[in-house]
Amino acid sequence: MITKRIIPCLDVKEGRVVKGVQFVGLRDAGDPVELSSFYDGQGADELVFLDISASHEGRKTMVDVVREVAGTLAIPFTVGGGINTLDDMRTILRAGADKVSLNTAAVKRPELISEGADYFGSQCMVTAIDAKFDEELHSWRIYTHGGRTPTEWEVTDWAKEVVERGSGEILLTSMDQDGAKDGFDLSLTETVNNAVSVPVIASGGAGAKEHFSEVFSETNADAALAASIFHYKETSVEEVKKHLREEGVRVR
């Protein structure tokens, strides 16, 4: 049967991984290629690269990074951040990424998802959703621009919309839990899971290996994503997988 995926996320700015710390045996913690091979060796099932470059030059550098990573990595990887047009998608996918992730651009113009899915196939269209609980809405509201801008969308409505438009996967980040390190947002994850029929990646809140077994036993999430917990060596992909195996969660 299919296994649950563990996905480290790397923030890349002007071609360099930020927030990365020095791992033993790693010459350059800022080198996306070296860091991705490191995570591959640890048993990561997939990687997500988030381009947080502000400049046009930084974006162009990202394409080189993608090309280099694709040349060495034998596991799938997704690239998000700064993808606004069909052309942007084509450039990143041609450079060797397996999937592209859309966030703000999809909310601004949902047709972009349909166009991407028609052109490249749903399997490479991920929609990243940043959601925050809203008292008024009695549910979670979608935010864009890295969580700065509230939208009118309620999370299950938006999740259904993006799947209907051809998104093949949802990367769901809880803004309430993000950075809190006390576990994934189980309620949000399960709510979205129940609303759609495509794989959901839970993100935001991982602070210990137990949080991974929790999200997989309490929800039907297909994958869990984390950044700092891996980068700052609070735990490793290897340790998380060992723990999941002990808890009876199927992993690779």
Partner: peptide, 9 residues
């Protein structure tokens, strides 16, 4: 869920 996406044995 469909697609069958991920690592399987």
């Amino acid at each position: 869920k469909v697609p069958h996406m991920g690592w399987n044995k």
